[in-house]
Design a protein around this nucleic acid. Structure first.
Length: 459
DNA sequence: AAAAAAT
């Protein structure tokens, strides 16, 4: 199967296959281990993951990848999943989620081995964006190398015939975005009747109207007797409703308080007029040339415009958003991962989950209109224990969004530049109007607006 | 109100 995925990708030459970024560190660890042991022996299952019941072959693979020390979510989640329990995981990406569900699930697939029938899959992983599905597939392949387990990724924007053809042989692990999967189901290219493992990744992003409908339809096609793993960064009401529907007596695992950004990210907000944002961005980036930066815009069109401008100004820049072809999206991401382009301009399609270890800066060129997306966006930096910076550009019209973000994060973002727009009452910024609640009333409303509303006595 | 996901 790998050949198939590779085949599809190999139109572009640059050695792709394992684009695992975590290669460099791992080797040290391996050497350290070899030193202590007789060389050239079987990779004996040792270490924390083996103790949690992970298959020895998989264990050897992840050791080679440098995964030795389980992250909190792995530590809590893996034993439960190995046991066959349902799990509800509250965690952002970057917490080791993919391994947390991937390792134990693959272990079980090996343990209860049986080949998949044609046009069936034994396990299904659903993700909200194509790039995320691709990333998960890459990781799963790396974990499962040398085992009989075969995985395959199906997403939109790629030839459906190739996918149909591959599915005709059946697959152990299917990684999919909902739309394309539904299409394949309707074409009878795949049936979920024998799928006894379901993983919903970034589930809260799949709650959107239109998405959730497809999700429910898909979920109905799986057997009731199955193991379901659900991961979400936040837990809105609809989310817990969903988990009640799909999970049976789940083990709940939460790592770092929901809605809170990781700590190694140095954050700041710079107030600036909308028209001066591009120049300001160029200034910031010029101070850190050679370092990877992600720039988030609000609209596809806005991202496109900004990309052209930055390109004109000489930045090595690429863009990723929903108006680009899948090929362009993949090339942009690949070039960014390689460091060929230092700047990636993106809509919220890239806000979640993407794991690009070298991203040093996140610029919120436009503030997100969904406050939680701020946390996801800045989570693209400071990965794998590195440091990262996140700068938000706030135009006068965006102050409302800024406050919403601060409320969601339960913390103010330090002001690092520009003037706090004057239309905002001073009390609301920083000062927090301590002590005296009402007596500032006079200046709270900035002067009284002329008539407009004939309302009552006033005017 | 915007973006994503099927063509």
């Amino acid at each position: 199967m790998k050949d198939l995925m590779e085949q599809k990708n190999s139109r572009r030459r640059p050695a792709r296959g394992s684009n695992s970024p975590k290669r460099s560190q791992p080797l040290n660890n391996m050497r350290a281990n070899e030193g202590r042991k007789a060389p050239a022996r079987d990779p004996l299952p040792t270490g924390a993951f083996a103790d949690m019941g992970i298959d020895p072959r998989i264990n050897a693979n992840i050791a080679a990848l440098g995964l030795n020390q389980p992250t909190p979510i792995q530590e809590k989640g893996i034993p439960a999943i190995v046991e066959g329990r349902d799990v509800l995981g509250l965690a952002q990406t970057g917490t080791g989620k993919t391994a947390a569900f991937g390792l134990p699930m693959l272990t079980r697939l090996i343990k209860f081995g049986k080949k998949p029938d044609p046009r069936t899959c034994r396990a299904l992983i659903l993700a909200p964006t194509r790039e995320l599905a691709t990333q998960i597939a890459t990781n799963i392949d790396a974990y499962a190398e040398g085992t009989p387990i075969r995985s395959f990724r199906v997403v939109g924007g790629a030839s459906i015939n190739v996918q149909t053809e591959r599915l005709s042989r059946g697959v152990d692990v299917l990684i999919a975005t909902p739309g394309r999967l539904m299409d394949l189901i309707e074409r009878r290219a795949i049936s979920l009747e024998a799928t006894t493992y379901l993983v919903l990744d970034e589930a809260d992003q799949m709650l959107d109207i239109g998405f959730i409908h497809t999700l429910r339809k898909i979920a109905r096609m799986l057997p009731r007797e199955r193991q379901t793993l659900m991961f979400s960064a936040t837990m809105p009401k609809l989310m817990s409703e969903l988990s009640d529907t799909y999970l049976t007596n789940p083990v709940k695992v939460a790592v770092n308080p929901p809605g809170q950004a990781a700590k190694k990210i140095e954050q700041g907000v710079h107030f600036v007029s909308q028209g001066d944002k591009a120049t300001l961005l160029a200034e910031y980036m010029s101070k850190h040339t050679g370092e990877l930066a992600m720039v988030f815009g609000r609209t596809k069109h806005g991202c496109e415009k900004l990309t052209k401008l930055l390109d004109k100004w000489g930045f090595a820049v690429a863009a990723i958003h929903g108006n680009k072809s899948q090929g362009q999206r993949e090339r942009a991401l690949q070039a960014f991962r390689n460091g060929e382009t230092k700047v990636l301009v993106a809509t919220d399609v890239a806000a979640r989950g993407l794991d690009i270890p070298d991203v040093a800066h996140v610029y919120n060129y436009d503030l997100p209109n969904v406050p939680e997306n701020y946390v996801h966006r800045i989570g693209r930096t400071a990965r794998a224990g590195r440091e990262g910076r996140a700068v938000a550009f706030c135009a006068p019209a965006e102050v409302g969004e800024l406050r919403a973000i601060e409320r969601a994060m339960k913390a103010p973002i330090p002001v690092i530049g520009g003037e706090v727009p004057t239309s905002i009452p001073a009390a609301a910024r920083g000062g927090r109007m301590r002590g005296k609640p009402m007596d500032a009333g006079g200046q709270k409303r900035p002067a009284r607006r002329p008539s407009r509303k004939p309302r009552n006595q006033q005017a």
